[in-house]
Design a protein around this nucleic acid. Structure first.
Length: 676
RNA sequence: GGAUGUGUAGCGCAGCCUGGAUAGCGCGCCUGGUUCCGGACCAGGAGGUUCGGGAGUUCAAAUCUCCUCACAUCCGCCA
């Protein structure tokens, strides 16, 4: 039994149509859709053209005949024919009562059979634990979090997962730098831990690169540059250039060496300029122990990979610190994850090796020198693979490297194991990987690899939730962890918060505590909404001024409409009871009716958003509803309406509108303040 | 060269999956109302050589198919 009033109305009309079709002996499935111009044609309509064609009739005439024979329905007041369309004008009194009474009685009717009882995993953010989250991942965080909420509303059992990439040589670099700082100096506390670790990582990595270059020069060409192994200068590069020339090194090799050195000088200069004091501190720490990073880094990496106790202790401690900082930052935006899956755990459990063995056994590995590639094309020929991944038969998919010539496994291999874990360990029916554009190729390769280990079932549950990049208006466009060039969510928050205060909140004379609360809620809302409101595949330019604007399609605009509605309700002691349902039949004005119709749409909007992966549909809906409410507010009085009955009905309408606005904002993880 | 995405008014976008009536919305611009249950509002108007361009399918195309142009991103030893 359906409870959704919109569905009840449409099914009622469908029943009427079925009856007419039977009487007139017509074939075909008529559709019911909203009319283009509501005021002139009615609320819903059915185009008759196809039906007419199938039954060899003239559309205009047939529409007229259907209209004449249409049975009397509770929902429908008038049926009319116009240019091949059958138009239905709904009975406002009856439908208003039907729709509003259900909303006022607190009934929710989102549940979809498609998702009921289904376990769905949404993996998002998954930032490296070597620094803060930046707005590259952050758009994914908002999309993932919001989509998870929408899926939950649609009846799914949703888990959000964060994949912690604690393998790969970027981690030991960070760990060593961090450990040395703790040993020889004090850890600064005036900066968030993840931001601090980001700096340690970038600086240590720079010195690691310098050591590597200098060591190679010494071993290969017996060339010693300067006395500081952790610092490189332009003069040294010139000296190197001259020496290499003298030693008859090939021009090509000269070029690579020089290019590498110049690249790293660039980074060194850049970071040093911006973080002089801290750079010096960290460099000092490194010199106190005179560690050879070119040995220490791979060594720690190897020991961590093989699960050696002291290595695990150190690495985990650092990663946990970074993760804690990232979580704090997400928490500001009201985002948290259900599960954290560590990459190393997969390695240690043997699942990664098992995957490699299985790929090998099934004949999907290709050897290229000492490296091993995945034969993605062979996997693409497996039953159903090309169709699922929308790959043309002619498309030759590049073969990714799984194991390097030095024997190191690469992330794609571990990702295969992780994909299986998501399906098996978490018993997922569907897995969404929220990962930015630029990962399309590897996500396809991953899906094919899962098929190659005979897990077509798992591959058919995986879905890459793709999204475009995001930039901050007026800021640099390319993000680089190595150069410490990134915009963090915190920065976004602060800029937006500032705009909120400037734009309107400063002028308010609310108590400070309430002011702070409102500012926080509005800021968070503005950020989330602006990211969700635009289609996933569109480039996003974040502008703090625009996202808090009160006349755009923004969260503050909708929150303001909500505050207005609550303001009216606060002036009375409105409470709803079933006894008052009769009054709902007194809403006849266009402005009222448009709201009622819109209120009924939320459930189908939620389902569409879930099924089509379009969270932006919620935003469009809220914007429409807020606009309709503003029109109503301007055109009609609520508290002193013509009759007492009408006041009650309009209060109910106002209350129900506020309810749907809150409901919709909630789906986006946005709160609604009752005044702003 | 290949893959994917985007192209709709001066600007920012919705509609495309599932083809339907005069292509919507916001900003900006012009005109007017409203000092109210919070003007952070509302009404009207100008603005698209008709949806990057071309062909096709259809009674009907912004929407489906094919071709083409522009821009963005990705394409073996980082993750």
């Amino acid at each position: 039994m359906t409870q959704n009033p919109e569905t009840i109305i449409i099914e009622d009309i469908q029943g009427g149509l079925a009856k007419v079709f039977k009487e007139l002996n017509l074939t075909g499935k008529p559709i019911i859709q909203e009319t283009a111009k509501k005021s002139t044609f009615g609320d819903y309509c059915t185009p008759i053209f196809q039906i007419a064609g199938a039954n060899k009739r003239n559309p205009q005439e047939l529409a007229k005949i259907i209209t004449e024979n249409f049975p009397k329905l509770n929902c429908v007041e008038e049926v009319s024919a116009e240019g091949g369309f059958v138009n239905y004008k709904l009975n406002r009194a009856y439908c208003s009562r039907l729709i509003l009474s259900k909303i006022l009685a607190n009934e929710k009717f989102y549940q979809s059979d498609l998702y009921k009882g289904k376990r769905i995993i949404v993996e998002h953010t998954s930032a490296n634990p070597n620094g803060p989250i930046h707005i590259g991942n952050f758009r994914g965080s908002i999309i993932g979090d919001t989509y998870a909420r929408i899926l939950k509303a649609a009846g799914a059992d949703v888990l959000t997962n964060f994949y912690v990439d604690d393998l790969g040589h970027q981690i030991p670099v960070l760990v060593i730098g961090y450990e040395l700082l703790k040993k020889f100096d004090t850890v600064p506390t005036d900066i968030k831990i993840d931001h601090l670790l980001g700096r340690i990582y970038a600086i240590t990595h720079t010195m690691y690169d310098i050591q590597k270059i200098k060591k190679e020069l010494k071993e290969k060409y017996d060339l010693i540059l300067g006395k500081d192994i952790n610092w490189i200068t332009k003069e040294e590069v010139k000296q190197m250039e001259a020496s290499l020339k003298k030693k008859n090194v090939s021009i090509e090799e000269q070029k690579t060496q020089i290019k590498q050195s110049e690249f790293i000088i660039n980074i060194q200069t850049d970071i040093y300029k911006r973080f002089k004091k801290f750079y010096k501190i960290l460099k000092n720490c490194l010199e106190k122990e005179s560690i050879d990073l070119t040995i220490a880094v791979p060594d720690l990496n190897r020991r961590y990979m093989s699960n050696e106790k002291d290595a695990v202790k150190k690495v985990r401690a650092t990663c946990e610190d970074a993760l804690r900082g990232q979580r704090e930052e997400l928490a500001i935006l009201g985002i948290e994850h259900d599960n954290y899956d560590w990459e190393a755990d997969l390695q240690w459990s043997g699942q990664v090796d098992a995957t490699l063995t299985s790929l090998n056994k099934n004949g999907f590995l290709i050897e290229d020198g000492k490296a091993r590639l995945f034969d993605a094309n062979k996997a693409a020929d497996l039953e159903g693979a090309r169709k699922y991944l929308k790959m043309k038969p002619s498309y030759e998919i590049p073969k990714p490297i799984l194991v390097t010539s030095t024997g190191d496994t690469l992330y794609l291999l571990r990702d295969i194991a992780y994909s299986l874990k998501k399906v098996d360990h978490y018993s997922a029916d569907k897995v969404f990987n929220v990962i930015g554009k630029g990962q399309e190729l590897s996500q396809r390769q991953l899906n094919l690899a899962v098929r190659a280990v005979c897990r077509e079932d798992a591959a058919n549950k995986m879905w890459h939730l793709n999204y475009e990049f995001m930039e901050l208006q007026g800021a640099l466009t390319s993000m680089s962890a190595r150069r410490l060039q990134y915009i963090t969510p915190l920065e976004l928050y602060e800029k937006t918060h500032e705009a909120v205060m400037e734009n309107f909140l400063q002028k308010r004379d609310y108590p400070q505590k309430e002011k702070d609360d409102i500012a926080r809620i509005v800021t968070v809302g503005a950020i989330k909404y602006s990211i969700i409101a635009i289609g996933l595949m569109r480039k996003l330019l974040f502008n703090p001024q625009e996202v808090v604007s009160l006349s755009n399609n923004t969260s503050p605009f909708i929150q303001y409409a909500f505050a207005r509605s609550q303001n009216i309700l606060a002036k009375t002691d409105f409470s709803w009871s079933k006894k008052k349902e009769n009054t709902l039949e007194s809403l006849f004005e266009d402005e009222e009716w448009q709201i009622v119709l819109s209120l009924a749409k939320l459930p189908s909007i939620v389902l569409n958003a879930a099924e089509q992966i379009k969270p932006e549909l919620i935003c469009n809906y809220l914007f429409e509803l807020a606009n309709l409410f503003n029109k109503f507010y301007d055109a009609h009085r609520v508290l002193d309406a013509e009759t007492e009955e009408l006041t009650i009905a309009r209060l109910a309408l106002t209350y129900a509108t506020g309810k749907q606005l809150t409901e919709g904002l909630n789906l986006l993880g946005i709160e609604s303040p009752s005044r702003m």
